[in-house]
Design a protein around this nucleic acid. Structure first.
Lengths: 354, 354
DNA sequence: CAATTCGTTGATAACGATTACACTTCTTGG
DNA sequence: CCAAGAAGTGTAATCGTTATCAACGAATTG
């Protein structure tokens, strides 16, 4: 029965054929006479033979793992992304190696080098820095890379992300339309693509209606709950606090909400809020605010699709895919499931890039 | 510089030594003259040589991956667990292969077989069924297994989990102490360890005060939001609905909260709630209720520790470790961060098992 | 009918590292 | 000063699989 250490040689001996023939039968390549095939299959059954994937990978100089580099799986956006990617990979016979970088370049570099040494099949990465992240080690090893959520400027590769500019413009306009002139911003560091794009869209939208962004009510930092909390508290300690607030990702939103709760500020009566990202618990909250929802499963699908095309030998120049976010108003959010009455933004862009 | 495909042979040629010597220098084993070592290191630098981890794994017949089998990474408990385990493994030079089973035995089996074929270094698993999950394929391949959160009865291995019985007894007693006699229960299927233990503790605690559990206000099923939602709605459609409710994990709690919101039931005024698991957003909610918090990082630490001991050659009989949950009252939860004023339960148990 | 192609199979060489073994050369204690 | 052990190094086997090549008989074709 299925004991350990049964190799192709054992099967060959049992079936009275050469290892080459067993390989042909098992891998289904090449011609083998029906009678021989049956003998080999019988031997495989009897011995409980299973080919060593490690030996196969070694022989092929390519493993079946795809490395996923994200800052932190505990960020719900990354959680959903990881889940969706894992599903996609599983369906294609690959498996997922989870790498949390915590936005630490050193750890990111270590993991990239590791994946190169390990001859990963591919890498899906949300780079910790647009400028400092280099995929050189993996690319030099011939491993394809796809960026998600962010891009790396030094080594251009395929990338998929949400149209941050359109989404943030919509969030900002939403607050402007409600009459707010003093809108605070708690965002991500601009070395991160999503941080830069979201902040710039916010600033540009304000300027487009004649408002100069005020650095007193803008805080950029790590996309974690603690920063969102502290930054929000700080914003409201200024002489002229904002009447509205924008948070640039779900962890920042979480921190901001806790800060506002601590300050006793009601949303939207005292402070209006517009936030990036959706979480399953949003509809349970008393505060009401607009959110921009990212098409996470679609990002995952396209990322994996692109990776597979590269593995299939595609050598076209890298593509950059932008997907639309969906604006969910506070009324829609109230509806159970938070998936009703969504408002699409503008059309999907696909930009060719040198 | 660091080109691809630089093998140990290239380094050997460059340094004018044999591959064995290069191996000795690079892996740091065996004696090499200082001058030779320097020459080899120079060649390594010049060529940008990095040993192929794949070849190493193949040679050693053991990879550096640890498979983590959980039902769904989107369950926040699993998310935190995965994160904590990844940290532990990273510190020890291993990496994490993420496997979502969705509680589907077929998918679990597929992954276990895959990990066996891949010669994983180890497996950490929350089995989808106490009775039907078999680690035979991995164990036969000599791969150590540690169970977390749940146990597998057919193939006993090391396991770590929270003391479900003590925690659920405390939750139930809490509601009883507040005068509730009719306490509903939305829990997990009893083929899952945590489902069975939590339900039994609930039932036993009720009986201990002379209350016979009423199946009309008990629902057991998949630990997902949708089930929590539907089950809760169903409970309150009965002729004599409960005055209090217990939910057995965080996804069920999420669903239950949405259901109660839909029903317009205030917590705790209309319905009291006691729940298993903590989530970061709990303190933002208007509803107030008690929760049992699991020591997730500790579970991860012990699980990885046990795995490492097995990898180190430990052949003692499997150990079963139970850790204490922490009861967090609604008042404590109000405090920011939800980590103040915790109430420890009873002492840690360690049970030897045949 | 000769020439070619195809189907079938086995022997063998990789893939890139580690390591047991053998063979020098040093040390060093007696 | 010699024997014995240690240090330093190379050769070759090995891990399990797949791919290349050659060999041979059967079938096809001009």
């Amino acid at each position: 029965m299925s004991e350990t250490n049964v190799t192709i040689r054992d099967v060959a001996r049992r079936a009275g054929v050469s290892v080459a023939t067993v390989s042909r039968v098992v891998s289904g390549k090449g011609h083998v006479r029906e009678a021989t095939r049956a003998r080999v299959n019988a031997a495989v059954q009897e011995l409980g033979y299973r080919p060593s994937r490690m030996a196969r990978s070694f022989r092929a100089q390519r493993s079946n793992f795809v490395g996923l580099l994200i800052s932190d799986i505990e960020n719900p956006f990354h959680t959903s992304l990881a889940r969706a990617i894992e599903d996609q990979l599983y369906a294609r016979g690959y498996s997922l190696l989870l790498c949390n970088t915590d936005e630490v370049l050193e750890r990111e570099r270590t993991y990239l080098q590791f994946l190169a040494d390990e001859r990963a099949a591919g890498v899906i990465c949300a780079p910790a820095s647009e400028k400092e992240t280099s995929f050189h080690p993996v690319l030099a090893a011939g491993i394809p890379v796809v960026c998600v959520d962010r891009v790396a400027l030094c080594t251009p590769v395929d990338s998929v992300r949400v149209n941050n500019v359109a989404a943030m413009r919509a969030l900002t306009r939403h607050l402007l339309n409600r009459g707010h002139r003093r809108i605070g911003f708690v965002g991500l560091d601009t070395v991160i693509t999503s941080g830069r794009e979201r902040f710039e869209a916010y600033a540009q939208t304000l300027r487009s209606v004649g408002i100069e962004p005020d650095m007193n009510i803008i805080r950029l930092g790590k996309g974690v709950e603690a920063f969102g909390f502290q930054a929000t508290l700080a914003l409201f300690e200024t002489p002229t606090p904002p009447t509205a607030l924008i948070t640039a990702n779900n962890m920042l939103t979480l921190g901001a909400l806790k800060a506002l709760q601590k300050l006793g500020a009601r949303i939207p009566e005292d402070v209006a809020l517009a936030a990036f990202d959706v979480t399953p618990w949003l509809s349970l909250l008393t505060p009401r605010f607009v959110v921009a929802a990212q098409p996470i499963r679609q990002i995952a699908e396209i990322a994996v699709q692109m990776l597979m095309e590269r593995l299939g030998g595609n050598t076209q120049p890298p593509r950059e895919v932008l997907l639309d976010a969906t604006l969910i108003t506070d009324e829609a959010l109230r509806a159970f499931g938070a998936e009703a009455e969504t408002v699409p933004l503008n059309a999907t862009l696909k930009i060719q890039r040198g």
